[in-house]
Design a binder for these strands. Structure first.
Lengths: 144, 144
DNA sequence: TTTATTTGTTACAGTAAGTGTAACAAATAC
DNA sequence: GTATTTGTTACACTTACTGTAACAAATAAA
């Protein structure tokens, strides 16, 4: 699952929770709604739980609850919760041939550039919260 | 080879050509300099050739020549030459479960968002030309 | 014309990574 | 105590990536 697929899948699940708040939904229920394997979804949800974005309870009638108001939950926060490796898989060729120093310098340059790009992306995601996404996709939040 | 590795490898090769212009270098020579397999490099260079970024000649004493002044060659142009698929591998889960329409709407939203991000990245790359990279990495261009 | 060399492209085996599903321990409401 | 649910691990299967080799087409030089 790519970082972008994880992100969109998570947002689908989270907005389902927001739209039906404060009803608890289990992984099978959510997975069925958004068309993804329940086990796979649980792996995503457990990361969201560890970052206090959702609250989970085990056992009979257990499941997931959104733990933040949709207007206070932005994309970057979700992205960081589900993706530990930095950046969108941006890397350079670490090997260097004859021009060793030059290659090292180039690698530094590009890692810095890719890092800048990553910052830009995260800044963009910081400006987008779950409520605004739900509005744009026509889903009614059940929060007041 | 990821898009980012291709990009940095290409730039290393191109700045080597710029630094030694108008000397012709073959793939073995360039590959040795930057520490990459010659056959692999040729695959990159052939794409740069098709986009008129370098000029190639076959046969004895053949090889590659930079075909643009470093100040007129920007990163986005190089990126487009070597990478046909759009975006940094950003995608969504196309499958949709019970909430079919909602999932389709979400997918559209995220594909638009990722497309915006792609545009931002390309705009950033348009502002960076080969000459400025060479200056920052301390490589002297052999162009006047 | 012949020969040596180089690009451009394809092929391929070996490796690594991603995918989907199942299975099960730990937790917990009933 | 029992049924159910999360959280995690495992695993077979597929897909993608990697590095290298091989060779046809092109072409400069002899």
């Amino acid at each position: 699952m790519s970082a972008s697929t994880k992100l969109s899948t998570s947002v689908k699940a989270l907005s389902y929770l927001a739209a039906t708040h404060p009803t608890t939904h289990n992984s099978a229920n959510i997975a069925e709604q958004i068309g993804v394997n329940a086990s796979k979804l649980r792996r995503l949800m457990s990361m969201l739980t560890k970052n206090d974005i959702v609250k989970s309870t085990q056992g009979i009638s257990g499941g997931f609850l959104l733990n933040k108001h949709p207007k206070d939950l932005h994309l970057q926060e979700i992205y960081c919760a589900i993706e530990d490796r930095k950046a969108f898989h941006l890397d350079v060729n670490k090997k260097s041939g004859k021009g060793k120093n030059i290659n090292v310098t180039f690698n530094e340059y590009f890692l810095n550039l890719f890092s800048d790009i990553q910052v830009d992306i995260e800044n963009k995601m910081k400006k987008i919260n779950l409520l605004s996404i739900m509005k744009q996709t026509g889903i009614k939040s059940n929060y007041k």
